[in-house]
Design a protein around this nucleic acid. Structure first.
Lengths: 206, 206
DNA sequence: CACAATTTCTAGCAATGCTAGAATCAGGAC
DNA sequence: GTCCTGATTCTAGCATTGCTAGAAATTGTG
């Protein structure tokens, strides 16, 4: 059945073409510009073809978002592995995260702001790339999150919890800055302060 | 001119009615349900009346958002003033912030996620209620943000910078939880950890 | 080549934000 | 009271959106 095989391959290619085109269009002109008509035009098919691949427009956005998590996980991972020390890794991952958000604002918006219907933090239903991204945050924070030797300040919080807070802070910085709620030039200073608080480095007494 | 005065008063009342109705409708059924037709129906006028008060639909959302900042500033302020100690004030304001976001998700969305065209952090153009809200965050963090006596870890960051980071972290927690990116039950634990990091309290050596 | 199944497109629906021009209503002059 | 003028409000409609039914075209098979 080489004919059907070719057909399936073509379908897969077209599927990816739609996702890639949606992403490019969103990045170039914002998600408002991603209408089913314009998207269909760009991939040089008619609208109903989109609906033979995706249930609705949200499903397309969701596909873009999940692809974004693949990229994000890879970026965070290589930032983490390239760092020389645990503290440097934390800095590198944080920087990589903010760089990612700044470099692909529309993609980041799909991943974190648009109402894609994805269950987070529930092992069975959360897409793998999404878990992978979070895993990178957990990994970089290590098994002993707080000041070594100082004892846990309030009953042994697991690293995952710290990772959630870490992620929240980074997401807050990224999204408030992107949406113009915080001035972009101050981002490095904010990141520096955040890292100082999270890593507890600097001329503190221990 | 008692006639024109009454007219102007009626116009103001109708203006407020539109904003209040938009807010209620958004809170009840989400912003997607706030269409100009449904909104006009609810205020018992026709669509063009909306456009005699607001330039477009975005301006209505913006009006709702600014009203939200009035409420938020008041909540933060009373939380701050009711606290017994500086540290307790930080906790109280953080809690009040997250409570506000959880209690009025649609309102919070208008304030921080929807693309209302408002310039933030630029004294001349930023609406006053918005500056007031930020001022509450700055006030609660006080003039000496970091561990007293320990010296600034990297060149005297002003309180405003700490307030921005503080705000980002809170916003991250609020928005990731609201959008289902983080499980809601863990919010108290996350807030506790964040506060421990920001206030540097707990059984740390100093 | 003719037929059947699949794929694709044309054309259209209901709903959206927004607006032009008609209809209505108020207030004042006589 | 009666008409006129100006402001206010509404009806009706446009272009665009996401989505879909049914026609048309294409492909593979006997």
């Amino acid at each position: 059945m080489t004919a059907t095989q070719r057909r399936e391959r073509d379908r897969r290619l077209r599927h990816e073409l739609i996702v890639r085109t949606a992403r490019d269009l969103a990045e170039a002109e914002g998600w408002d510009a991603v209408t089913t008509r314009r998207l269909a035009d760009r991939v040089e098919y008619s609208q109903p073809v989109l609906y033979s691949h995706f249930e609705n427009k949200d499903a397309i956005v969701r596909a873009v978002a999940i692809e974004g998590f693949v990229d994000l996980a890879a970026q965070l991972r290589s930032a983490r592995l390239a760092a020389a020390s645990p503290d440097a890794a934390i800095r590198a991952v944080a920087q990589a995260y903010l760089d990612f958000a700044a470099a692909h604002p529309a993609l980041y918006e799909a991943m974190f702001s648009l109402p894609i219907d994805v269950r987070f933090a529930s092992p069975g239903q959360t897409p793998q790339p999404l878990q992978d991204s979070f895993t990178q945050l957990v990994a970089v924070l290590g098994p002993t999150p707080l000041a070594p030797g100082a004892g846990e300040p309030f009953g042994a919080p697991e690293t995952a919890l710290l990772a959630e807070v870490y992620w929240s802070a980074l997401h807050g910085l990224a999204t408030l800055t992107h949406r113009g709620r915080l001035p972009a030039p101050g981002q490095p200073a904010r990141l520096g302060l955040l890292l100082a608080l999270l890593t507890k480095t600097g001329p503190a007494p221990y």
